[in-house]
């Protein structure tokens, strides 16, 4: 029984870490690309949205090639910092974060873009610096959309399978996420294990969504 809980806790760890990363990265990118328009901003916007439309296995392949021992990013990381990402839970975080990023990014862009400019300008007129305008006016007004995007990102990170399968190595306790565990249990004919894992995961996801729904409601 406890064996079956290991992939669940690992997946939660990976999903929470990935969501934290994409929350900051997504909102930051959305702010910069929404506020400033420069040559190439459209292209960067497309690249930021790309993981959402790309098949996960394609993304997994890109990550394997980039972060692998002989990849341009992976070999640099290994030689200079001694860090290896493939076959580690941190690598699984990168995979989950990559697929979840566009969800926060797009939601943040839409929400931040929808904030009334008059309110932001009023703050500026009253002497607020850009940082204060963002944290005290824009973000509080946009938080609902950003939060919704973050919940979607978390769900996506928890369910990530294709890219993770290519770069994780299915090591129990380190990279065997719940999706991979279920996949392998089904393939090995261990239907009872698969059933248990599926029910457990569904229960956890429903609880998380219900809790976040309540959080949104209470503000009203």
């Amino acid at each position: 029984m406890t064996d079956a809980l290991v992939p669940l806790f690992l997946t939660l760890k990976i999903a929470v870490t990935a969501t934290m990363i994409v929350l900051f990265a997504g909102v930051a990118c959305a702010y910069v690309l929404g506020r400033y328009s420069f040559w190439g901003s459209q292209i960067i916007d497309a690249i930021c949205t790309l993981p959402m439309v790309m098949p996960p296995t394609v993304l997994g392949y890109y990550l394997l090639v980039a972060f692998g021992r002989r990849g341009w990013l992976g070999s640099w990381l290994e030689d200079s910092l001694g860090i290896q990402l493939i076959f580690t839970w941190q690598g699984a975080v990168i995979a989950s974060a990559s697929v979840a990023f566009p969800l926060v990014y797009r939601a943040a862009r839409a929400s931040l873009g929808g904030v009334d400019h008059h309110l932001e300008n009023a703050a500026r007129v009253l002497g607020a610096g850009e940082a204060k305008v963002f944290f005290r006016v824009s973000l509080p007004l946009a938080w609902r959309g950003v939060f919704a995007g973050t919940m979607l990102a978390f769900a996506r990170a928890m369910g990530e399978f294709g890219a993770t399968l290519m770069i994780a190595g299915s090591i129990p306790g380190k990279t065997q996420t719940i999706s991979i565990a279920i996949y392998e249990a089904v393939q090995a004919g261990q239907d009872s294990t698969a059933n248990f894992l599926v029910l457990l995961t569904s229960l956890v996801c429903v609880c998380i969504l219900a809790a976040s729904g309540k959080l949104l409601q209470r503000q009203f």
Partner: peptide, 19 residues
């Protein structure tokens, strides 16, 4: 030290990539 793969060709791929 084991890295578990889904089939023998994935093992071969990891070897070919030096992973």
């Amino acid at each position: 030290r084991f890295i578990y793969t889904q089939n023998v060709r994935q093992t071969l791929d990891y070897l070919a990539r030096g992973e």
